[in-house]
Amino acid sequence: MAKLNDIAAIPIHPMALPKAEHAYQAPAILQQLLAMLGRLIEHDEPDSIDLRALPLTEADMQSLRELLGEGEVSGVVTTYGPSQVFETGYSGVWWVTHMNDDEEVIGEFIEVTYCPEILVSPQDDVREAREALRARLLQNQLDY
């Protein structure tokens, strides 16, 4: 028992997060985004970067967020858990964070596009909406 108590007395010093100057990879991603914006403008080709497929440190992520900033548009899509979407300070560069119902991040992307697909109304949904609205109006005619 005495030994166990000794263990509790061992001081624990949490290490500081890697410093911002250790964010080596953010500039490389900015270069990639520049090329992707070029393809969007010239060839109308949207593209995206899977941030979780890259070995980014917390410092990289933080620096990337700061470098890109926040633009005019932000929102939450609530389906299959929340998804946070915002346009960065650079128009056409969007930051999309998908979470599950427990709000754990299950995917994080930077999308280079005029509008992220998750924000656009799905065509089949729009067709169904028209039918639903028609049915509603028909019902109202019968009611009155």
Binding site: D47, S48, D50, A53, V77, Y80, H98, I106, F109, I118
Partner: peptide, 20 residues
């Protein structure tokens, strides 16, 4: 929803190690 399915596919591709 269909958006939910879209999200499911995006995160599944990521999980499978496939490009977006």
């Amino acid at each position: 929803s269909r958006r939910g399915f879209l999200k499911f596919c995006a995160t599944t591709a990521s999980m499978l190690g496939l490009p977006p």
